[in-house]
């Protein structure tokens, strides 16, 4: 499921002016939140419901940044980043991990899994924007 205008123009365009951010989270509400947070950040948001869809859409759109919830169904965040890092377009792409609780935040594991940064929910909107702008 993809939102945003000019769908066709977004594909395979690495020099585009607007950056593309892929959010993978199984909660619609969470995905909406990210979309609204980044609304004025000059990014287009591509939404994935689960890990498998995240990979499929990644290949289709080659996003500039990933925001992956660690708990996505079918393939969790760790598995997705593992797959992404194996593929040429995404070796250097910034990938942010979203973790649902302090207990789940295993920063060592997150770092070694290949993520570029992590945030724990609930995420203050300002923090997310700052993180994205630093990475892009």
């Amino acid at each position: 499921m993809v939102l945003g205008e000019n769908l066709e123009g977004l594909r395979q365009n690495t020099n585009r002016a607007r950056k593309q951010v892929l959010i993978a989270d199984d909660s619609q509400s969470s995905r909406d939140l990210v979309r609204f947070i980044l609304k004025r950040s000059g990014c287009d948001v591509i939404e994935a419901q689960d890990g498998e869809q995240a990979l499929a859409l990644a290949l289709e759109f080659i996003p500039d940044l990933f925001i992956l919830d660690l708990n996505t169904p079918k393939l969790d965040g760790y598995s997705v980043v593992f797959e992404l890092r194996k593929q040429a377009p995404f070796i250097q792409t910034p990938i942010v991990a979203l973790s649902a609780s302090v207990a789940q935040t295993d920063s060592a594991r997150i770092a070694t899994a290949g993520f570029s940064a992590f945030l724990t929910k609930p995420i203050p909107p300002a923090s997310l924007r700052k993180c994205i702008s630093q990475l892009l």
């Binding site: 509400s29 969470s30 909406d32 939140l33 649902a100 929910k121 609930p122 995420i123």
Partner: peptide, 9 residues
């Protein structure tokens, strides 16, 4: 927790 995260957001 999930809904609360979005409420807060």
């Amino acid at each position: 927790r999930t809904p609360l995260h979005t409420i807060l957001g």
